[in-house]
């Protein structure tokens, strides 16, 4: 029976994530608008945008190659595969043995490379500029992520996200400075990976500062819909990851029957909603930084992650 439940929960999780991703982006936008005193678009607007874009035929440059055609699908596929591995309402889903944090980072890198190559395909200056910046910033964001993973892996004994969530929930690890530092590093990486303020502005096309938008400037129609959808999935993935690691309360344990899922679903909705509120408040309160301040921001995150690991050595060495 447990095997059936794990498969069912996996399917439910993927369906839920696919449906919730556009809604989450819409909710964040709506919250930000409310905080700034505007009425804001309906939270379902991103979904409507995607449906509208899907009906349009994409326009490609004459010299665009097969990369432009294939990359949006690959990026969206990588995002779906990655989000299938991040637990939401229950642990012990069918794909739980696969849900390795380094693998998730690798899948995110796969989507990132697909996007960078699509940006370079036509040879327009903006695409190349965006690709160059994206890959450069990722060069600091990835080690910062690995440093946070190091802290988690030492505490949980594995890099498997499902197992980390489980041991953080049940393990009585206490409040630890290292976890706090890992959280700071992960938050910085999440902000950079999702192109949020202060690293990038998700809602402008201001040429000189943009990173993410510059790469998909040429896309239209279903390709643009896929890029947007992949970005929305990534946002949900990161919030889900933070919730699983740092707020594991309420998740249904592995192999539990569906009646416990309801609690997990409610807890998950509350956690993601809270994180969305925090994100909106943070983005409303802060200004975008200069592009060449971003390396300092990510470098600081990297060093704080390293510091967290070092302090952890002290406490594990002593205890």
């Amino acid at each position: 029976m447990a095997a059936v439940w794990s498969v069912l929960s996996q399917l439910l999780h993927v369906a839920l994530a696919l449906a919730a991703a556009p809604l989450l982006t819409g909710v964040v936008r709506w919250l930000k608008a409310r905080m700034m005193g505007r009425r804001g678009p309906h939270p379902l607007q991103p979904l409507r945008d995607i449906l509208k874009l899907l009906r349009k035929r994409p326009v490609l440059a004459e010299n665009a190659s097969a990369v432009s055609l294939a990359a949006p699908y690959l990026a969206a596929g990588a995002a779906v595969a990655a989000i299938a591995l991040v637990p939401s309402f229950a642990r012990g889903m069918a794909l739980a043995p696969l849900s390795d944090l380094i693998l998730i980072a690798g899948l995110l890198a796969l989507g990132r490379v697909a996007m960078a190559l699509a940006g370079m395909d036509v040879g327009s200056p903006f695409g190349g500029l965006g690709a160059s910046r994206e890959m450069s910033f990722a060069a600091l964001a990835e080690p910062a992520l690995v440093m946070a993973v190091l802290t988690l892996a030492i505490l949980a004994g594995t890099t498997n996200l499902d197992a980390i969530g489980g041991s953080f929930r049940d393990g009585g690890l206490g409040l630890r400075v290292s976890l706090g530092l890992a959280l700071v590093a992960l938050l910085a990486v999440a902000i950079a990976e999702n192109a949020r303020i202060p690293v990038d502005n998700p809602s402008t096309h201001l040429e000189l500062t943009m990173v993410h938008e510059a790469m998909i400037l040429e896309s239209s129609g279903r390709h643009l819909a896929l890029w947007e959808y992949a970005a929305q999935l990534r946002l949900l993935l990161w919030l889900g990851l933070l919730a699983t690691v740092f707020l594991p309360l309420g998740q249904a344990p592995a192999g539990s029957a569906p009646h416990l899922w309801i609690v997990g679903l409610g807890a998950w909705a509350v956690k993601i909603g809270g994180l969305a509120l925090g994100l909106a408040a943070f983005e409303s309160a802060i200004a975008k930084m200069r592009v060449f301040r971003v390396p300092e921001f990510l470098g600081a995150a990297l060093l704080l992650g390293l510091l967290g690991a070092v302090l952890l050595f002290v406490s594990t060495g002593l205890a």
């Binding site: 349009k56 969206a76 040879g123 129609g221």
Partner: peptide, 19 residues
């Protein structure tokens, strides 16, 4: 992704000069 997009989106692409 391909299947979902195929169901709703029109096939083919239009070509134009690069911006």
């Amino acid at each position: 992704a391909v299947w979902l997009v195929r169901r709703r989106a029109p096939a083919g692409v239009q070509r134009g000069p690069a911006w």
